[in-house]
Design a binder for these strands. Structure first.
Lengths: 149, 149
DNA sequence: GATTATTGGTCAGAGGATCGTACCAAATTC
DNA sequence: GAATTTGGTACGATCCTCTGACCAATAATC
């Protein structure tokens, strides 16, 4: 009745970490190589949550699972580097919407390309069906692991 | 042709990150609650790679994917907190083997229990077959994402 | 409408994690 | 025996993250 990992094998969390780490470093390398040399992984994790019409800082913080101070710290850097802009939120005078600039969109295009390339490699290695099962399983897992899905 | 991240599904790397993060925080909470209050996630990642007969610092660093300085920094803390010990390596006078103390083994037992509990929850949510497919897929992915598997 | 509580955000300070550079001593190679 | 590699340490810098305290605008309550 034991469901844990086989003896000596890493658990599912560590397996996920290894894959995530590989994807992140590949994407970051590609973005850096494309001339966006000042981006860090932490900035990217916040950046990736910004919606098309802008997103509030608190919401970014919740989704990226960091405090709002940390999110503000990272958004400051992204703003100074020209990837995002802060605009007043028309519906709330306290809030400001973080939006993506043209330079930000250019970086996103590179990141998307690198992601697709890595996913293609993974698909070649695992096969098409196993990959789509993997995606389905991880997506369903979000239902119980990601309160802000 | 919109590139806004929220449109479209997150990539496999991000999905892995979400699951990994959930596992890590659950395990860390359990270890902390069991009285091992001074352990951090980074320490745990190095700690988890120590073999039954002790492991050299450089090897820990490679496997955990950090520099040897970082590994040394973390092992220092683990040693001060009583989880590991450094013993001379009989086969090489330069090297020292990092080994796990009794307190370290006690912490491992708690961590293993928490891991198993989380994996059981995931299995309940996904079903037994999908979970074992997930484990198989992630394990195969290691072949191309983890040089030190 | 006035008071209270909540929410979005900032500021200041601290600690942890990670790296690059430089260096030493033991081991290995030539 | 000299040159190179390998295991490890020391120092300094940077980045990331959190706590705690605080402010101003909004929402809820009376």
């Amino acid at each position: 009745m034991s469901e844990g990992p086989p003896d000596g094998e890493p658990n599912l969390g560590l397996l996920c970490f290894i894959a995530y780490r590989a994807m992140e470093s590949r994407v970051l390398d590609a973005v850096t190589a494309a001339g966006f040399a000042d981006v860090t992984a932490a900035q990217g994790r916040v950046f990736a949550r910004i919606g098309p019409n802008g997103t509030r800082l608190t919401e970014l913080a919740e989704q990226a699972r960091v405090t709002k101070q940390t999110a503000a710290f990272l958004v400051d850097q992204l703003e100074r580097a020209g990837y995002v802009r802060r605009a007043p939120d028309p519906s709330d005078a306290r809030a400001r919407l973080v939006t993506i600039t043209e330079r930000g969109h250019a970086a996103i295009r590179v990141a998307r390309g690198a992601e697709a390339e890595v996913e293609a490699e993974w698909t070649r290695h695992l096969g098409r069906q196993a990959t789509s099962q993997l995606r389905r399983a991880l997506t369903r897992l979000r239902e119980i692991t990601d309160p802000y899905q």
